[in-house]
């Protein structure tokens, strides 16, 4: 796989306000799937990355901790303009959208106990859970031919959801074993 993320972009220098406004838009439009909008603005509109570069960056950020799009913002801002770029992108991604979202949400939360709204929120919560599970299943698709991968995904699921073990314990117990399994897979392939 070709990683060319740290090379300077070919076009003119990207300005800090451009980083701020682009990630502001990604965040504000990001209903239900910010990744889709991130791709649209970064690849199609601004041409800051090619499709392949965006896919590489996304796969790195999916495996880093934290909200994926926030990580993309930091990585891309830092690639284009160093620490100031990372800060400008992150500020655009968070400050204004957070303020708007917090105001709207606080209002909703205040009335969350009221009959009609309470029932609506039940329905939305049920769908939200489904969207997360679907995202997980889609991410699992490329690994479906690897028995060890399916085993470790199942163990992580059972450990957290059924056995209700602490996340830190599940991660520290399974991650090294799963990496060791990936290592033996490779040895067998060879």
């Amino acid at each position: 796989m070709a990683y060319v993320l740290n090379e300077a972009p070919a076009g003119p220098r990207v300005t800090l306000p451009a980083l701020f406004t682009t990630f502001l838009k990604v965040s504000l439009f990001g209903f239900g799937g910010p990744i889709v909008w991130a791709r649209r603005f970064i690849v199609e509109q601004q041409h800051w990355l090619t499709d392949q570069e965006f896919a590489d960056l996304l796969s790195l950020c999916q495996f880093l901790p934290g909200p994926n799009v926030a990580s993309i913002t930091v990585c891309l801002g830092s690639k284009l303009r160093g620490p100031a770029g990372a800060a400008a992108g992150l500020a655009g991604f968070i400050v204004i959208p957070w303020s708007i979202g917090f105001g709207l949400g606080a209002l909703l939360l205040h009335f969350a106990g009221v009959g009609g709204l309470r029932n609506t929120l039940h329905g939305v919560s049920a769908v939200g859970a489904g969207l997360i599970i679907a995202t997980g299943l889609r991410l699992l698709t490329p690994h479906r031919t690897r028995p060890m991968a399916l085993l470790f995904a199942a163990l992580a699921f059972v450990g957290l959801a059924i056995a209700k073990l602490p996340l830190l314990l599940v991660v520290t117990a399974l991650a090294p074993l799963s990496i060791a399994a990936a290592l033996t897979e490779r040895a067998i392939l060879r």
Binding site: L131, I132, T135, L140, M148, F152, A153, A156, F157
Partner: peptide, 14 residues
Amino acid sequence: GLAPVTIGLVIAGG
């Protein structure tokens, strides 16, 4: 190695 574990955790969250 890490991908399957993280995917299992995401599904558990849902």
